[in-house]
Nucleic acid binder design. Sequence first.
DNA 1: TTTCCATACGTACGCCTGTACGTATATATT
DNA 2: AATATATACGTACAGGCGTACGTATGGAAA
Lengths: 117, 117
Amino acid sequence: MEIARVLWEIGPATVREVFEQFPSNRDFNFATVQTYLRRIELKGYATSTLKGRVRTYTASAKPRTVIRDAVGDLVDRLFGGESLPLVRHLIEQREIDDKGLAEIRKLIDQMEKRESK
Amino acid sequence: MEIARVLWEIGPATVREVFEQFPSNRDFNFATVQTYLRRIELKGYATSTLKGRVRTYTASAKPRTVIRDAVGDLVDRLFGGESLPLVRHLIEQREIDDKGLAEIRKLIDQMEKRESK
DNA sequence: TTTCCATACGTACGCCTGTACGTATATATT
DNA sequence: AATATATACGTACAGGCGTACGTATGGAAA
């Protein structure tokens, strides 16, 4: 996931480019990043091509899809499929700052407006 | 997680009691539930005592703690540690119904009030 | 041209997870 | 008392994940 996120963020990239996205506090071995990218491709979340000596990876699955699946899975396991308790948890545990709270309120307004139309 | 949730919900319980919480669409084998409970105890999330022939498990870790860890992990992996995008995702993908949205709005009000005090 | 460096690719390995079987044994049923 | 039933407990086994090593090879530096 960490690796896939990098691919989404910086777009098509070589192993080295992905590797270099990680700050020193998250120090993977180059070969480890390589393995992850290979596996990501195996699962169909990315494609790659060999240009000369260097393989370049491109994300194929959309973030939205992968995120939906992963979050759905967590929600099933932790909350029996209910999303609301997760949001409640996040807000109550103060994981969201003031600015964030304001943004969420705005989002809710929009969703309600859109829904009633 | 599914198993631990049951322990939290129904309190101390025997393997059979936990086993019976699952509806037929989620059909574990009795032995499977047994194994999970053993592992949950191994990890320190529960304790157990043998009364006569029957072992009874009691959750020890608090849901809040386990949930915080699991959600934190997901947020790290999927969103680089930012919780807001997760909430945004949940709301935008319409995972929350009207009633839920209203409740969240109320919650936000409360949090803001509490914070400013 | 010889040596070094980067990269690809195959392989490894321990741990975790999901799932369950088999066996011993104690309790309930006949 | 003999037999069936339930339970605990040890064990298993495949697949995934996190992490990386080793080796071959092509291009760069000396």
